[in-house]
Design a protein around this nucleic acid. Structure first.
Lengths: 123, 123
DNA sequence: CAGAATCCTCTACGATACTG
DNA sequence: CAGTATCGTAGAGGATTCTG
């Protein structure tokens, strides 16, 4: 985490911090879902699209490209006709899967507390 | 995680899954930064704004409201003049901090691999 | 100091149509 | 099947101004 000092000696999370750039990428609505879906086993485009409900073809393509670009996902074109494309997690991707799934576990575990807090809020 | 079966017996991440709703909230560009900033110690609005560089007053207010609403952050109005408002993590918030910081740790640890992958991509 | 309100811009994203 | 290309729109979010 790249930081710069400020008057009160707080750590400042710089705008141009590369870590923040990475965090922005993976703090994405679809990234977590796709990564988790791919963790089970390699999957083809259509199957992913069915599994990650509500994602558009455009967003799935776009998000997968980003993940491929960052070395998190592997894209393999199968020499069939018509073409099939299989996506899988890379080693790096599998290492990211660990904290991602912990985040999901936290969500599942605390969904009730959050729902309760929301109900309480504004009364 | 609320799921529905599909033809190929894949787990489907439903659109209306409450867990997904929570995941969407915390998969937010600012949430992680704010949560981590508050983990050190309770902080006031101005100080948070300085620390989380690049956030606008509007977004900081908005994000803090969301976190407060979800029971992750506590908002305390100090009886000073002019008013001061101190934000701190709730117990629930501190429990979320754990996986969040792991995500940041992962980012810091793997920023180099990602940068390398990006450089490689498209060649 | 900590915000609420307003306006305005820009881009993320969906919908649709087309291709190797 | 797995995309690319184009267009159109809603909403996220910045800048600015005002207040208890």
């Amino acid at each position: 985490m790249v930081t710069t000092p400020n008057e009160s000696s707080d750590i400042v999370y710089s705008v141009d911090c590369p870590t923040r750039d990475v965090m922005d990428q993976i703090s994405n609505k679809w990234v977590t879902l796709i990564m988790i879906a791919l963790a089970d086993e390699p999957k083809r485009f259509r199957r992913l699209m069915r599994q990650v409900q509500g994602i558009s073809q455009k967003m799935l393509t776009q998000t997968l490209r980003g993940l491929e670009r960052d070395g998190l996902v592997n894209r393999a074109v199968l020499p069939t006709s018509p073409i099939q494309v299989e996506y899988s997690l890379t080693t790096l991707g599998r290492s990211l899967y660990v904290p991602l799934v912990e985040l999901r576990t936290w969500s599942e575990k605390n969904i009730e507390a959050i729902t309760a807090a929301r109900a309480d809020f504004g009364r």
